[in-house]
Amino acid sequence: MNAVTWEQRERIVALLDEASADPAVRAVVITATGRGFCAGADLRGGSSSDGSPAQGDVTRMIRRGAQRFIGAVLDCEKPVIAAVNGTAAGIGAHLAFACDLVLAADSARFVEVFVRRGIVPDGGGAYLLPRLIGPQRAKELMFFGDAVAAADAAALGLVNRVVPAEELAKTAREWAERLAQGPTRALALTKQLVNASLDTDRATAFAAEAAAQELCMTTRDAREGVAAFVERRTPAYEGR
Results as ranks from 00 to 15, higher is better:
Val113Ser: 14
Arg131Glu: 09
Asp100Thr: 00
Ile119Thr: 15
Ile119Leu: 12
Val115Asn: 08
Asp122Arg: 06
Pro135Met: 02
Gly125Glu: 02
Leu103Thr: 05
Ala98Val: 02
Pro121Leu: 09
Leu95Asp: 00
Val115Lys: 12
Pro130Thr: 07
Leu103Cys: 04
Arg137His: 10
Ala104Cys: 12
Leu132Gly: 06
Phe114Tyr: 14
Pro121Phe: 05
Leu129Pro: 08
Ile133Cys: 07
Phe114Ser: 13
Arg131Ala: 05
Ala96Val: 06
Leu101Gly: 01
Gly125Val: 11
Arg137Cys: 06
Val113Gln: 12
Val115Gly: 02
Phe97Trp: 14
Ile133Val: 15
Ile119Tyr: 04
Leu128Arg: 10
Ala126Gln: 14
Ala126Arg: 15
Leu128Asn: 04
Gln136Met: 11
Ala96Ile: 03
Pro130Trp: 07
Leu132Phe: 09
Phe97Cys: 10
Pro121His: 05
Ala96Lys: 00
Ala98Asn: 00
Ala105Arg: 00
Ala98Pro: 00
Leu129Phe: 09
Pro121Lys: 07
Leu101Val: 11
Val115Ser: 12
Phe114Gly: 03
Ala96Ser: 08
Tyr127Lys: 13
Phe97Pro: 00
Ser107Asn: 10
Leu132Met: 11
Gln136Ala: 15
Gly118Asn: 07
Leu128Pro: 05
Val113Cys: 09
Val111Tyr: 00
Pro130Asn: 08
Gly124Gln: 06
Phe97Leu: 15
Arg137Lys: 13
Val120His: 08
Gly118Glu: 08
Ile133Arg: 01
Leu129Cys: 11
Ala98Met: 04
Phe114Ala: 15
Ala104Arg: 04
Ile119Asp: 05
Ile133Thr: 10
Val120Pro: 09
Ala104Asp: 06
Val113Asn: 13
Gln136Tyr: 08
Ile133Phe: 05
Asp106Ile: 01
Glu112Lys: 07
Ile133Glu: 06
Val115Pro: 01
Val111Cys: 05
Gly134Cys: 09
Gly124Met: 07
Ala126Phe: 08
Gly134Ser: 08
Gly123His: 10
Ala105Thr: 04
Val113Ala: 14
Ala138Phe: 06
Arg137Pro: 07
Ala108Ser: 12
Ala105Ile: 01
Leu101Asn: 00
Ala108Phe: 03
Val120Glu: 12
Val102Asp: 02
Ile119Trp: 06
Gly118Thr: 08
Pro130Ile: 03
Gln136Pro: 00
Asp106Thr: 01
Leu103His: 02
Ile133Gln: 06
